[in-house]
Design a protein around this nucleic acid. Structure first.
Lengths: 344, 344
DNA sequence: ATGAAAGCGCTAACAA
DNA sequence: TTGTTAGCGCTTTCAT
């Protein structure tokens, strides 16, 4: 039987209902002091019949811990970040923590706003995919004791726990796949400069070409941003070159949707006219035509690991920062064909 | 210039730094009392130089307001809910509120856990896509004064603000599209029973058939759940019938991915052998082959409207509950062909 | 083994 | 116009 009290029920109410002191009620809830079984039982019953829920403001004010962590990403709508969020949330939930979500749209101002918000909300920790300009102020920020974990973007050199994937290796494997198929003019569509995924994938691209003695042609690199229209725009730019690339690598899954639209718009076929591959796999890969060759990254696991790192740090604030690099996997499907597209 | 204090800086520190009382500091932060420009200025400077951020525990304890709202959905990973989340988050952010996210996986126990969590976190409001069994306990719950808004699922009869789409009309339009094309054996793959989208879409299906004098064949209705494998399983079940349907309607976008895989596995072609349509559009629709005919629903807007409703209610607790029904749109692409698949 | 009481940092009523 | 202070509901030390 449950009561709805107009003025919400406090620990005092429970105490008097159970005829014990508030200290005893607190003790049974926290289980950190001996309470005789009889009293404990009585308290538990009172809690149940009064429908008491402890007030986390009061608790937090006293203990300085909020049992909540933040997750700040560019855009939760990007499946890459959605999966990270799910991974984070699952482990947060397992720790009885709650997750506060924020989208920055890669805007440092929005990011700062969230940082302030989370600070004043006394979040215990924060998992963040920082914007390109964050490092400029991140060090200046008096971040209380907000434990920080960086995902997708690197802050490891700032002594911050970081979870990333092997961007360079992943990209290199895809580009080398192109090269093995005979491609030499390989286009690259990048996301925003200044963030690790972009820079590292760019490095992987360069590395692959150099390794095989293929000169880097700046005209084959389109710098855009990780959204559908960014991909479309980048692909358009490269594919309308008079000497267009025979292969195209997209740095991000969402960009690929746009790129594929550009390809269709130009009346190009894949893999006949053009090989395509990208970073990120898709749940809808099976229903895409053609089946896309991708560099898969373990998105859910990134979130999980980041959350694990965060909770570890919450336990021990002075342990050495770790950088976790998760592996990517080249999944060869059909968008690269099995040989160089014939050029007349 | 910014200081990092070991023991975080309080309003008292600001007060003494600015040589004013804490009440004055509070007044300038809240802007609800007159403070002379000189003092206000001094206070603001002290706040800045000390890097002070108000403690929301203390504030909340006093004011009973947390400036945070919850969002509880089955699975943030489903693009339908991702977009809702983005919509909610954007308006929450505009109100300087933060968003606490929870996934239930349609499990009432997880849902209850989040409800408790949000209560004890003193969330001011909650936007929720309830599980099938929530109404059993939702009324019993002493929900403090947690303002509630229901999305996707209906709680309007419980006097709770609700945002939904026109499920029945949307589904009917798709089924009638099938019928107009000459289909009479129309299969339906449903999600979980007992939730409004399922029941209402089912009603729309039934209504369309009845309106055109087509008898309902229970064998053509597969009850599964709104995930990829649910769709695959449902489609498999219907398409392996000896007298299989000539058209298939999927109730949910994610299910459609599975269904399309089943179709491919069975060596069926679409639209030649089978017409397909579903609820939900996809960002990746342009790169799907065939282009799917869908009933589009304004997902982002659902979240936005829900959040608006919530903030309105926060302002006025006793206004009449509203039910907002957003319109769906049938987008005819190519998965239905332009006529009945030829049957030999 | 249990209870009394101080105090966490803030807001707001009241005093000056 | 500004300051003093009580108290929000909890945890925790210190008494008993």
């Amino acid at each position: 039987m449950v009561m709805s009290a107009d003025h919400s029920v406090t620990i005092k109410d429970v105490a008097s209902h159970a005829s014990v002191s508030v200290a005893t009620v607190s003790a049974v809830m926290n289980g950190n002091k001996y309470v005789s079984p009889e009293l404990a039982q009585r308290v538990r019953e009172s809690i149940a019949t009064l429908g008491y829920k402890r007030n986390s403001f009061a608790r937090g004010l006293k203990t300085q811990i909020s049992y909540s962590i933040g997750l700040i990403v560019p855009d939760i709508t990007n499946p890459f970040f959605t999966n990270i969020a799910r991974g984070v949330e699952d482990v947060a939930n397992a720790h009885n923590y709650s997750l506060i979500l924020g989208n920055t749209d890669e805007d440092p101002e929005k990011e700062k706003k969230y940082l302030h918000l989370l600070e004043s909300k006394q979040a215990d920790g924060l998992i963040i995919a920082v914007t390109a300009r964050s490092r400029e102020y991140l060090q200046e920020l008096p971040l209380r004791d907000l434990a920080l974990v960086s995902v997708d973007r690197s802050l490891f050199d700032l002594g911050i726990d970081t979870v990333m994937v092997e961007n360079r290796e992943g990209t290199r494997s895809a580009i080398e796949h192109f090269i093995a198929l005979g491609h030499r003019r390989i286009g690259l569509v990048t996301g925003l400069r200044g963030i690790a995924p972009t820079e590292e994938r760019l490095a992987g691209y360069t590395e692959a070409l150099e390794k095989h003695g293929i000169p880097i042609d700046p005209a084959l690199i389109a710098m855009t941003y990780a959204r559908i229209d960014g991909g479309e725009q980048g692909a358009m730019q490269l594919l309308t070159l008079q000497d267009r690339p025979t292969a195209l690598f997209l740095m991000d899954g969402t960009m690929t949707i746009g790129a594929l639209q550009a390809v269709a718009r130009l009346g190009l076929r894949c893999p006949e006219d053009l090989a395509i591959a990208c970073f990120d796999d898709f749940t809808w890969a099976p229903v895409m035509r053609p089946h896309l060759t991708v560099v898969d990254q373990p998105t859910y696991e990134i979130g999980q690991q980041a959350a694990h790192l965060l909770f570890e740090r919450l336990l021990n604030r002075k342990k050495n920062p770790r950088e976790i690099r998760l592996q990517t996997h080249l999944i060869v499907r059909e968008t690269c064909g099995s040989q160089l597209p014939i050029k007349e």
